[in-house]
Simulated scan of single mutants.
Amino acid sequence: MKKTSLIQKLEVSKKEFLETSKLIIQPNIISDQKKYRILLKKYLTLEKIVFLYEEYKKQLVSLKEVDFILKNDSDTEMKELANTEKYKILENLSSIEKKSYNLIFSSKEEYGTEDDRKAVIVELRSGTGGDEACLFVEDILRMYTMYFKKSGWKYKIIHAQKGGIKGYKEIILDLNGEQGIYGNLKFESGVHRVQRIPKTESQGRVHTSAITVAVLPKVKDIEVNINLSDIKKDTFRSSGSGGQHVNKTESAVRLTHIPSKITVECQEERSQHKNFEKAISVLRSRIYQNEKEKRLRKISIKRKSLVSTGDRSIKIRTYNYPKNRVTDHRIHKSIYNLAGFMNGNIQEMINLLKLFENK
């Protein structure tokens, strides 16, 4: 890590420390034991970072002083002492840099950004590959739900559209838990490509299909204010499972946000009111994500789009069944245990993506 980059990060940590110091003494925080414990833990971590930062600045001042002696002093003995001192200072700086980086990284891991701590909406859609893509949506759904179980997260299906033969054309999940869900799952957004021999393939040829995954942070109504007059609401009979009831009543809901033209459907609940609430939640997350991307484009931050068209040429990850390999193309990392990966053991890849992002 470059010194200027580290100093910037340390400055941010110091600012966070000062803000946390003010928050932690507020009566409403002290009275809420859960919030207080979280903030106290954060405060103690940031305190260590700030201590290292102050020491780092002292060492940089000392380095300037010895450099001045080495450049301007003519006394040989003095220069030798300065050289010895410089070596010690550089060792100290290197040690502080490593400690600071580890603390900053662990702090990000535990607390993350505000979005990182949020629950999420997960959307899976079939792309190129027809029925095989729909089957792969089902496989990836199984992979994620097994990962959710290992992580202690709970999910509900908001919307599901079955494929032609088996699998899903589209499925949307509402995912909640105590830990930073978005901070882990945000790396899953993009196109996932599969290479395998379909069950319907008589000549044993490997086919390539693709699906898209979108992970959206869930937002509250105070974060995204939706004007109800901007929403067009349609109701229809559910086509999903649920017995005779769903075919007799128009409980399914379709919402269209007129300004952004975003459309959301929900039909998993028997109550139209509950379907409306879930659809609003998804709509809010999609609008939030749209606005977030617009802001990033305005300040010229280079960023790939969350979800492309599902075209097999635009991919973030490939699942190659004949070679028992899953490859993430963003970090050029392959794991040769596809069966384990598809059984929800995806944390290793996520950790590598986190490490890459922080570096």
Rank of each mutant, 00 (worst) to 15 (best):
V215D: 05
R117H: 02
L60N: 09
Q203T: 12
L173A: 01
A119P: 07
K154P: 00
T4S: 11
R254T: 10
R142C: 00
T76Y: 00
K274A: 08
C134S: 04
F148Y: 15
L52H: 10
K14F: 10
K359C: 08
N72S: 06
L18Y: 04
P217H: 10
K199F: 09
K149C: 06
E138R: 07
K315G: 05
S209Y: 04
G177D: 08
V253L: 03
N290D: 06
L6Y: 02
D75K: 01
I24L: 11
G177V: 06
H329W: 01
K2C: 00
E123Q: 11
S305A: 05
G163Y: 00
E97G: 07
S334Q: 11
Y288F: 15
N184V: 11
T84W: 01
T45Q: 13
K278Y: 09
K186W: 03
V307E: 09
T318S: 09
R205I: 00
D67Y: 01
Y182T: 15
S313A: 14
K79V: 03
E348P: 06
H159C: 12
K108T: 11
S334C: 11
K220W: 00
F356P: 02
Q272W: 04
R295T: 05
N247M: 00
K233I: 15
K149S: 13
S151W: 08
G183W: 07
K22Q: 06
D67A: 05
Y144C: 07
R193P: 11
I211D: 01
I121M: 07
R295D: 02
K248Y: 02
K304T: 12
T76A: 06
K359R: 13
Y319S: 07
H159S: 15
L185S: 09
E55V: 05
E277K: 06
K294D: 04
I96S: 03
T145E: 10
P259M: 12
R142G: 04
H257S: 12
K88V: 14
D139Y: 05
I314L: 13
S300R: 14
T235C: 08
K14L: 13
V326N: 03
Y53V: 12
I231S: 07
K42E: 15
L306N: 14
Y182K: 14
R325H: 01
I29S: 04
N358G: 09
Q244H: 02
V191Q: 09
T76C: 00
K71M: 08
G164M: 13
E19H: 03
S106C: 01
